[in-house]
Design a protein around this nucleic acid. Structure first.
Lengths: 217, 217, 217, 217
DNA sequence: AATGAATGAGCTTTCATTCAT
DNA sequence: AATGAATGAAAGCTCATTCAT
């Protein structure tokens, strides 16, 4: 007479991850109770432990899997780009696009690092560092080649990442702007932000990436 | 034999706010226990209630007082600035400087909105909207005068605020850079980010659709 | 290593009700702590919440279930009685007998009404009203038929109920008097109390019910 | 700048007793907090301790003073009565009248005995016993003289006291009946309840006391 | 793989009481 | 005789987690 509602068999783990993602996104890791999570999935809270080992590990898995996927896809998106401006534009386009489709994962991976236990925290921070390093390297190269101008590469790296990631706090599918318009808006901001101040290589900066283009709904 | 150790009299409230600020910053509102807070202050947890009415109200007061102060000081910092670029530079300088001295307050005011009860949440979001509006107005004016160029004012507003506020996640006093250098780095990034691109398809970029507004949480 | 000592499975709820009944009877609802209750049952206080939803609801359930049972049994006891004096005698005999076997339930249902939250209070008062109404109707009928004489039916109803219910404050099983003697004593008092003062139908009023009789142990 | 509201000087103690009486009557001793009480009086809870020594002692004083006064006035009311029926009628009239004017004190003295600490409890129970004894003596005398008939004097004593005291649960000044009518109703019930069942001295039993009579307002 | 019932620690909040001022 | 701030205990309730079934 068990399992009157809720999910069944091998799909349960996926339901837990999905519900966990949503609840952590909405309430925060500390404020989400496993009872809530279980209720969302349609099982008793004790039954969660057939699928996860601890609450902490659920968070860790969600964050780690997300960052690994992020890195994997970033590297694919950067493949074949040669000039720093092209790389930066590809970085922005990828980052923004990815954040729009996975905004919960991204948000959690940024906001719940403090909820990770030290060992887990360090592992994630290392992965995050690798991601940041991709951007820092692009900026460094661009500055060296005279295509970019920044006061401090480190600051610029953090600032651009914050700018791009801020998206997760306001983006909703079906909002006023198309995804392409949002990408374009960010490309403009980021590419301009590192442009040399005096006379700029205008052409390379501002041509929007080919697939984008402003559109209204 | 009361009050053998710990804080005393009218200074206690200030100690509570200060410790609360730090603990919420470090662990998050939900993860901070009032026992922890009381221990930090040097009193029993029940004694907190001589100074606060609920945990929720402590958070609300901290956030509200911060945003009010932020708005007050911003308006003072913008006084006398005429041209949009001057206003924007003043905005950035103020925002960055303020965030370096009050990074905990700023961080909490951004990250713990979801921990506010609906009534409190709405009050704070209204205040935050007023702050955002200051920046949006500067950008709008700059675009109208041809000094700035953005794809979308709303997106640019959120992006620039995210860029600037990201500071709170990494800034530590006594780090590699001086405060002035940090301000300068952000001024460069922000001012450039909205700079006109030179020869661009101006018409298509910038007209915002009249009806809309983005959603935030 | 769960469940080393204490109560188990489906019997726990019954143990909680029983212990709750005793503790509320002895100390009052407000003075009974759930830790006490849990200790009595042999579980941790948090474990109570696998069986009850709140302390208030435990009280409410105890009181409501009691009154429903009381009404059900009263109606059975009155079945087939025709004349008002017979009905009144049956009412007294039932009430006294029931109160001797369920004195805790009865006491609580009378003394802890003020501890009920408004919504619960109203529901119980309505049920109690139905019980009182049974007695009021008997008196009204008896007065109309000239068998009874009272100054005021309402006052008499309350007074008789108070008289009968007072039993719960002193009755102890194994005391000086048999149950039958106690019933008889109350029958005499109540039947006489409403007897006409001038010329009465003595036979119907005062013959004690056959089974009773005073006994000493 | 102290004492902006609330009572002043020697009147404070009286205000505490009055408010305490009301709060205990309404919520019960355990459920009344000293903060509530202090708020009612218009002082801080710590200030109560300038007037009372403990919460327990406040209860004890209220109950003891009430019972002493009750005994004192009862003895005065019984003075000069010779025949058992006269004494019983005087007892009822006094008891009912007193309970109508001091219903809170009476109610508390009956319902909060369990909240008294053992030493206090015993003292009060002794006083209460003295009061009960007055009634028991009247009944015993009446039975000996053939004026009354009861199955058991002890039971009758408790029952009559319960009947009379029940008044405190429903009496409200300004209700449907005058005080005199209420007294008369109880006189009828009690005098009849102990009347002999066969041949009785009707005149003495049932003539209501001269001043009473049913009235509506 | 699910349940239901348990644990023990912890939560926010309230309590009666104390006491320097 | 009042305040305001403290204590230490306890309140009702929730938590993550365990485990026999």
């Amino acid at each position: 007479m068990a399992r009157t509602i809720g999910s069944h068999g091998p799909k349960t783990m996926e339901a837990i991850r999905k519900a966990g993602l949503r609840l952590i996104f909405e309430h925060g890791y500390a404020a989400m109770s496993l009872r809530q999570l279980a209720a969302e999935v349609g099982i008793q809270s004790g039954s969660l432990y057939n699928h996860i080992s601890t609450k902490q590990e659920l968070l860790f898995d969600l964050v780690r899997d997300h960052i690994n996927e992020l890195l994997r896809q970033l590297d694919r998106a950067l493949q074949g780009k040669q000039r720093p401006a092209d790389k930066l534009r590809a970085f922005v386009a990828f980052h923004v696009t990815y954040h729009m489709t996975k905004k919960r994962e991204v948000f959690i991976a940024n906001s719940e690092l403090r909820s990770l236990e030290p060992k887990n925290y360090e592992e994630i921070v290392a992965l995050r560092g690798a991601y940041e390093q991709r951007l820092a390297a692009i900026l460094t190269e661009g500055v060296a080649e005279g295509e970019f101008e920044v006061v401090d590469v480190q600051v610029a790296t953090f600032a651009i990442l914050a700018l791009l990631t801020g998206l997760t706090t306001w983006y909703r599918p079906g909002g006023r702007l198309t995804k392409e318009a949002i990408v374009a808006a960010h490309e403009k901001l980021v590419l301009s932000s590192v442009a040399p101040t005096g006379t700029a290589d205008r052409a390379s900066q501002c041509a929007p990436s080919p697939r984008s283009g402003l559109a209204r709904r």
